[in-house]
Amino acid sequence: MKILKATRIERCIGCHVCSLSCARLVHGLLSWQVSGIRIKSSGGISTGFEATYCLACKEPICARSCPTGAISIRKAGGVRIRKDLCIRCSSCIEACPVNAITKTDHGFPVVCIHCGLCTNFCPHGCLEMIEAVSSQDVHDQGGQTGE
């Protein structure tokens, strides 16, 4: 039961191949935006890149915010959004504290489903699938997050 983590994002070269791959393979689109992971420069590309993606919160705030119950919580971590139940209200997009949810040109929310496909294409090994251990768990066990 693993989740996506950009564990080595400091190595990122900003190629957008991860986003393009997620859009192509998971969402059936050509896009660098409608993707579970989005790469952006943190204030001009001279300062490095940030990856935005679902952190697989232990208590997903997005799911709580959804008025129609379209968002279910995955056991492995993260959430699933059922398009047929979604009314495109954008509540989840606003609720996610790390802006992990984006939307299609039609307003449907898009979030990482932690499938791991993108990790196969990152040329610098920035992304990996790791066991879902939230910092809360680690805290409960009295340990360090290591992040």
Binding site: I13, C15, V17, L20, F121, P123
Partner: peptide, 10 residues
């Protein structure tokens, strides 16, 4: 290193 968008070579 950096890449042009869409280029894994960088």
């Amino acid at each position: 290193n950096l890449a042009c968008s869409g280029c894994p070579v960088g």
